[in-house]
Design a protein around this nucleic acid. Structure first.
Lengths: 215, 215
DNA sequence: GCGAGAGTTTGTGGATCCAATATCCCAGAC
DNA sequence: GTCTGGGATATTGGATCCACAAACTCTCGC
């Protein structure tokens, strides 16, 4: 038996809200009261308050003293800005990872994503893909980099469900590029490959977003 | 009259704790209880709880369910990592700012810092210096970039008091370089100048740190 | 003397309660 | 008719209360 991590209520509330925002169940501009959310989720206001503070940090809510919380949601511009910074940071992470001792760990995650992709298991792929990226940051071994990337990933839906199948093929091809740059211990090639991967994902995301969000 | 921003108790508590950590009044590894901090600051536990969550995000505290909060403080390695990422992000900000419309705003902040430096007003310089950097991020106009840089600046003491006088001369010279790259609208020169500025600051900071923290 | 286990203490996480402030609505004056 | 002011209402911020989890200690068995 390994020690399990216990998740406080505030995090579960935050997760629930994030999901609701990402799926569009809660719309941009909508106003939330602690009371209403608490009632709907069946908890007291306390964990909701704390969750609101977390979501504010992640840029999903706007809070003002004694005012209701306003859902910031995401504009197309936000998404572009998000991916821009992600490309910068993950590119740096890849460059650092390429000269680290932990390339083997990355390869393991790479293989997982690859096999999930080849057998067409979308859910497993989404999970493994995240592990692959995370393995890169871990190898880069800079707590600030890791913290910011974590925040970024929490700030956008990991994958729009409708585009996962399309994305898998392309992502796997990109991963090949990244992986070989890493194993060649070539920092700049790794940075380029990662940046390219992310910028390409942005295009896919935007296409899906544009067709999905004309509601 | 412009709308003034009201600061909730949690933020003031967080500020007080940050200061205490930066000055060394609270040492690395020390354990804090909500109760004790609340009593000392004369508030209830509630704002302290929320402040703890903020400081955890800034990397200054480690929280575990049902455990006391542990002060993470800063190792020398943390500081290097911190400046590394700051150089990356501020470099990017400078590159973007150089092609923005707001270079004039940056120059205003630059002049403020310069005049404070020339008349040797350390306090004013620290403030104006921060304004200068902030003006650059604002011009870069990417909310994520801004958010992360804000977090970084909150995570380290803005300036070790003893080195401000030394730092002023050098910083002003660096600022000249940055400013002219910005006004030449040369993104890569601006990035280089900013990176150089920050990496040089790191060296000064480390020297002061090493001599200051052998307690 | 030392380790295991129960009981005690301490401290957090979550619920509820109270205070303070912002918004809303309506009445009255000009 | 519109604007101003006051009171009612809604909602958050802060304080207190309670339950549960972790640490600590003391005792008992060996």
């Amino acid at each position: 038996m390994e020690p399990i991590k216990i998740r406080p209520a505030r995090e579960q509330v935050a997760d629930a809200l994030r999901r609701a925002i990402f799926t569009g169940e809660i719309q941009r501009g909508e106003e939330l009261t602690q009371e209403a959310v608490a009632a709907q989720l069946g908890v007291s206001r306390m964990p909701v308050r704390e969750a609101f503070l977390m979501l504010e940090r992640d840029g999903l809510l706007m809070l003002n003293s004694h005012r209701k919380a306003v859902v910031r949601g995401l504009t197309e511009e936000d998404i572009v800005d998000h991916y821009d910074i992600r490309a910068l940071l993950e590119g740096e992470a890849a460059a650092r990872a390429s000269v680290s001792e932990e390339v083997a760990d990355i390869r393991a995650a790479y293989e997982d994503a690859r096999s999930a992709g080849l057998r067409g298991d979308a859910a497993a792929f989404v999970e493994a893909n995240q592990q692959f990226h995370r393995a890169v940051w871990e190898a880069a071994d800079n707590p600030y980099l890791m913290r910011f990337l974590d925040q970024l990933w929490r700030g956008l839906p990991p994958h729009l469900p409708e585009l996962v199948p399309v994305q898998m093929r392309q992502s796997l091809a990109d991963h090949d590029q990244i992986m070989s740059a890493l194993e060649a211990k070539d920092p700049e090639a790794a940075r380029r490959a990662m940046r390219h991967h992310i910028q390409r994902s942005l295009q896919q995301f935007l296409n899906a977003w544009r067709s999905g969000s004309d509601s």
